[in-house]
Simulated scan of single mutants.
Amino acid sequence: MTLLERYILKIAFTAFAACLIALTGVIWITQALRELDLLTGKGQTLFIFLTVTGLSLPALINVISPVALFLATIYALNKLNGDSELIVMSAAGMRPLRLLRPFLVLATFVCFVVGMITIYIMPASFQELRNLFTKIRADFVGTMAKEGQFITLENGITFHYRERAGDALLGIFMEDQRVKDKVVVYLAERGQTVETNGQAYLVLEKGSVQRKEPNSHDSSIVVFERYAVDLAAFNQDGGDIIYKPRERSTTQLLFPDKNELLYQYQEGRFRAELHDRLSSWLYPFAMMAIAFAALGDARTTRQGRGLAVAAAVLGVVALRIAGFAASGAVVRTPAAVVGVYGVPFLATVLSMMIVLQGASIRKAQARLRAVGRALIPSRNRSVQGA
């Protein structure tokens, strides 16, 4: 890479890093504000809060990186043109493909980062985030319950205890309304949370369990001296975590368990998630190519570039809309997989054709000007001879 190409790459990379950090920071702050309920309402520590918000960063970077590359390409080309450097390069005979080379290097780097995040890092972060939220919800006794207050969880669990005596809770009331027609009420004089083999249990002492029979006004009461309640059961039936397609590893999407009920019910979403991951690295190339096709030509300072920038923005918007449409179609039919890869590939090819066509036109214009300069002296000599 020549000194000039390294200079262009430095400008583009600096703009890319600035856009990526700024956009990621702004969106991350908005996400963090939404998770403040972890500190205020659910009694979690600052470490848990930072962990939850930090696990969302790979997804943000994955979405923002292609946009940041697009903005960096526009900024770099506008800066080079505004300082008349692009005009000098064009007048010196610098080919568009040579000018494109630094942007291709940067786009290759961004594609690698996006591919690694999408295929490996982002699914792992989503899975860890699900595990963390599951643990927080399962440990609602130790993290959310307040002395003398009734708390109600989203899944229909209501919990209350009168006071705390050391590690024990006194005067416990717990109502399970997860099944509307089968309400279960736990009453106990004393209780304590115990963790065994990674499972959390609430051990109740000297109490009773009241169960209302479905579709009936009858109920049964069982008195106990000691009773253990699996807290994980209040989170998922059976205590097992069922991961969504986006929370599965890429290997699990490539080789799914076809006997799994979730896969049989959402096979299209599994297929769409897999091909979205495998095609995500194509979008940085496409967005960079669109920006370069719109602004890669040298123009004088009197020639406005606003229409070119607007055309590039519209091109990127159309690209993303077409990509989302293709992804949605894959859920319904496997034949739409071609569109998932074809949309960014076609956008890249069309943009490169525009760049090469513009280069051919400029080369033809240069030849015509050279022929014109050669003809003018000969005409002058013929006039002087006459």
Results as ranks from 00 to 15, higher is better:
147 E>L: 02
260 E>C: 12
200 A>M: 14
257 D>V: 13
275 H>I: 11
96 P>L: 11
28 W>K: 01
105 V>A: 06
184 V>M: 09
356 L>C: 10
354 I>T: 09
145 A>R: 08
133 F>V: 02
326 A>K: 08
176 D>F: 04
163 E>A: 06
286 A>P: 03
174 M>R: 05
227 Y>H: 11
238 G>W: 05
272 A>W: 03
259 N>Q: 15
355 V>K: 02
34 R>C: 00
219 S>R: 13
26 V>M: 08
47 F>D: 12
66 P>R: 02
251 T>R: 12
283 Y>R: 06
323 G>I: 00
160 H>N: 02
64 I>F: 08
42 K>S: 12
339 G>E: 03
307 L>Y: 08
292 F>Y: 14
353 M>E: 07
353 M>A: 13
55 L>T: 04
250 T>K: 01
335 A>Y: 14
231 L>D: 11
120 Y>R: 09
363 K>V: 05
178 R>P: 08
197 N>W: 07
120 Y>G: 08
182 K>N: 13
42 K>M: 14
157 I>Q: 10
281 W>F: 14
183 V>D: 04
358 G>Q: 10
203 V>W: 00
377 P>S: 01
359 A>D: 00
62 N>P: 01
342 G>Q: 07
356 L>Y: 04
167 D>L: 08
318 A>V: 09
89 M>R: 05
321 I>V: 14
72 A>M: 07
319 L>G: 07
116 M>V: 15
35 E>I: 02
368 L>H: 08
258 K>H: 10
365 Q>R: 12
290 I>H: 01
224 F>P: 06
316 V>Q: 02
36 L>N: 06
3 L>C: 05
154 E>T: 13
365 Q>A: 11
197 N>V: 05
385 G>Q: 15
107 A>P: 09
61 I>Q: 03
320 R>M: 02
328 G>Q: 11
339 G>R: 05
41 G>N: 14
322 A>R: 02
29 I>Q: 05
238 G>I: 10
232 A>D: 15
318 A>T: 10
116 M>H: 12
126 F>W: 09
158 T>M: 07
190 R>G: 00
50 L>D: 08
230 D>F: 05
122 M>L: 08
125 S>A: 15
35 E>N: 13
355 V>A: 03
212 K>Q: 15
49 F>T: 01
128 E>I: 03
319 L>C: 08
380 N>G: 07
70 F>A: 09
271 R>Q: 13
161 Y>R: 04
137 R>P: 10
269 R>I: 15
150 F>A: 01
83 D>Q: 06
165 A>P: 00
107 A>Y: 07
124 A>W: 07
124 A>E: 07
235 N>H: 14
164 R>Y: 05
266 Q>L: 12
361 I>P: 00
291 A>H: 05
377 P>N: 05
104 L>S: 08
371 V>A: 14
335 A>G: 11
67 V>N: 03
247 E>F: 10
190 R>W: 01
378 S>G: 13
305 R>G: 09
325 A>E: 08
316 V>I: 11
175 E>N: 09
260 E>P: 12
273 E>F: 00
126 F>S: 12
167 D>Y: 06
23 L>A: 10
40 T>E: 05
336 A>C: 11
